[in-house]
Design a protein around this nucleic acid. Sequence first.
DNA 1: GTGGTCTAATGAAACCGTTCAATGACGCTC
DNA 2: GAGCGTCATTGAACGGTTTCATTAGACCAC
Lengths: 351, 351
Amino acid sequence: MPRRSSTSMKDVAALAGVSLGTVSNVVNSPALVSAATRDRVEVAIQKLGWVPNESARQLRAGRSRVISMVVMDISNPFFTDVLRGVEDEVHDRGYHVQASNSASQPERESEQLRVLEQQRVGGVLLAPVGGPNGRADALRRRGIPVVIVDRAGDETGYCSVSVDDVEGGRMATDHLLGLGHTSVAVVGGPGTLHQVRDRRLGAEIARGQHGGTASLLTVTTPSMEAASGVAAADQLVSLPDAERPTAVFAMNDLLAIGLLQGFVTHGLRVPDDVALIGYDDISFAASAAVPLSSVRQPRADLGRRAAELLFEEMDAVDHDLAHEHQSVRFTPELVVRRSTAPAGAKAPASG
Amino acid sequence: MPRRSSTSMKDVAALAGVSLGTVSNVVNSPALVSAATRDRVEVAIQKLGWVPNESARQLRAGRSRVISMVVMDISNPFFTDVLRGVEDEVHDRGYHVQASNSASQPERESEQLRVLEQQRVGGVLLAPVGGPNGRADALRRRGIPVVIVDRAGDETGYCSVSVDDVEGGRMATDHLLGLGHTSVAVVGGPGTLHQVRDRRLGAEIARGQHGGTASLLTVTTPSMEAASGVAAADQLVSLPDAERPTAVFAMNDLLAIGLLQGFVTHGLRVPDDVALIGYDDISFAASAAVPLSSVRQPRADLGRRAAELLFEEMDAVDHDLAHEHQSVRFTPELVVRRSTAPAGAKAPASG
DNA sequence: GTGGTCTAATGAAACCGTTCAATGACGCTC
DNA sequence: GAGCGTCATTGAACGGTTTCATTAGACCAC
């Protein structure tokens, strides 16, 4: 069932008394057209309110001027901040950004990638849920560059922009152990997420560096959302006092905020009874009930740099140039706030 | 410069030894094709890894199976929560959701709408920045339905889904006045946002209902982000004690969180020195330094219902049925937490 | 003034990869 | 052999871009 007929280039051409090719030239290479005709055509475009059909253009051109980003959780401020960085960069080049959400489900991620392949978008930024995705390879074979965000791409053979999660995990844990804690819960999940695996590995490394005597308790959550944090807090609180860790490393700030809420509900004080550190340093971390220590990632830079790499690769594909995949890796930064103040001390709210 | 050649339906047809039309039928109406041929074609599709070109399909069909939502601030959790509701509904119908960000700039909004018109998307959900947008009218003229989200559409002649902002503003202010405050700052902006205007109006109404003796101080901010809240706090703190309002109504939670942070920095206690209520009840409101009172909007319902209306209108356009625009209006709900506890009292943190 | 060459502007038509209505081929049944 | 189903093929759209040919005019040489 066709939609209401829409004005097409043909109508514009007719009104201006020129051929299709000329209208096309007015739009795409104005220099080829004499000033007089150009004016006539432009008036006609205005009068009819014509907007070129991107599908048709794309069909000929082979791809569109849209960059798509697929994220794991669009309601996590971390990703929207990355997205902002992307927007800045992409906007400058006359492209447009669209976002879609995989909701941490591999099937949904594949589905979204399939749609993007169908749409023949210009390029894709992917914050992957799990392992390498076959659909991403398909995109690449078709000449649509893919840049991996928030995960090292060395192994997978993609360009990538990431933050050193092992180092971040190490820093967070090192900070807790440095405060004298000897029993630390490491909370996050599901274990299939590479962020989780890497940060856990970092925690292990820190433990080793501190003599290997501290005990790390791994708590696996079904998601990285605040609700999972609340549940994890319940679980920790139910442990006998002797076994309960005195510090918690949450693998992102949403979890940490949930944990914080859970602890407060059960009457545990942070940091006095239990120290807590998050990850990402989203803006809400600083303004949480107890300002959260966290590991800061350069979110906007991550997005900007990813977009840059994407455009580089797009250029290479377009002009058939050689392209060497790059892995840009940022270093995270420890941000200490009140949630990990040494027991008894009163650190001022920071950030 | 064309991209690497991609396998098309033609290749599939050749490999399977059938015509183009048959391949098309296998994909779109399998019942028309005999089992044997169908198998052969499917094997060929698999073997070549063919993905239909959406542009071409779309060119024929006149529009795509994508619903786009344009939001004012993609990093505001309020909008991502709405988006989730939209996703739920849209996914069920085999459509896909994409989001784009107008960053509260009318020009950017127009730009995004223009791109969507070019893309001939199936339908658009718009959380508008300012007044009616000419580009939205253009979309409609072209047969692409637009549903307005988070703003009543009565005047503009669109379907709309909104929450009663006047009532919400009234409830928030009524709550503060009911606590005995007689001087309330109403913080938000820019004044061009209808949310701001409506909520201010509601505040005025509450003032009238309380005898009209209280004084309302309007503080206009350049944006609805946390940074603006911090700045507003600075401004309020700098007032002579006598003139400084004892309560603040922030027009969204991001502002409120910023204000809270600002007050803390200056040593003002919430709610003892100044009571504070936000708007939206985003999930971070409950876990803020001082748990925030707020006005809850049914975010996911808002999104779901908007998507429903959109599909209704899309059906009407497709089948040339009459369509009457509907304005669905939800009622907000007051959520009281510690940030507006009566001076001196100690309210427990709530959910 | 005629004919030739060159350039700039325009037009005509092929093409991109699908969908879809119309058409054709084939084997059956009556 | 007329009529009917079932499958498959054909060819015309869809709305642009792009290549190539054509035309008009400017300029020059004779």
